[in-house]
């Protein structure tokens, strides 16, 4: 017997999406495998590494810790939705490039999602606040320093009016 499928409707990066999903499909697998938004990554599938962070109704959450069907009616933003409309890096993404706040790039989209959420609620965060905001996102390449610097730079650039 095939698995039952459940209808789900949500907004992803501003676009309406309607799909039929197995109940056990996690939101991250739905985003990646069904919608082919592969910028969100899977690291541990048990809610620790943070690589699957996305914005759910503008709040950062781990997309491996909910099922796609639970996102009914929600608005989801992934890393693809944080770029400029033409696909070029936005202010925060540009700051990550400027400070080389990444190496392999695997944790990077989630780091940017977590940092984006921080800057939305706190435009001038202290270093401690930045570290707290990305404290649930593991990175094995950078030792975090250039990430902290990138978020600081983005905050400065946004304060100067960069968009």
């Amino acid at each position: 017997m095939s698995e039952r499928l459940y209808k789900v409707r949500l907004k992803v990066n501003g676009k309406d999406v309607e799909a039929e999903v197995p109940s056990r499909q996690t939101l991250v697998d739905f985003l990646r495998d069904t919608l082919r938004l592969t910028g969100t990554h899977v690291g541990c599938e048990h809610g620790i590494c943070g690589a699957c962070s996305i914005l759910l109704d503008n709040e950062p959450v781990r997309s491996c810790l909910m099922y796609a069907v639970q996102a009914e009616g929600c608005s989801v933003t992934t890393i693809e939705g944080l770029s400029n409309p033409d696909g070029t890096p936005g202010v925060l993404q540009d700051a990550f490039c400027e400070m080389h706040a990444l190496q392999c790039g695997y944790c990077t989209p989630a780091m940017i999602v977590a940092s984006h959420a921080l800057l939305e609620s706190n435009p001038a965060p202290s270093e401690a606040e930045i570290r707290d905001a990305i404290g649930g996102n593991l990175c094995r390449c950078t030792g975090y320093k250039q990430i902290v610097q990138a978020v600081q730079l983005a905050a400065e650039n946004i304060a100067k009016g960069a968009k």
């Binding site: 809610g47 959450v61 909910m66 905001a133 649930g136």
Partner: peptide, 9 residues
């Protein structure tokens, strides 16, 4: 308790 992302949910 956990981190921002887990407390959000």
């Amino acid at each position: 308790v956990g981190h921002v992302q887990t407390r959000n949910r």
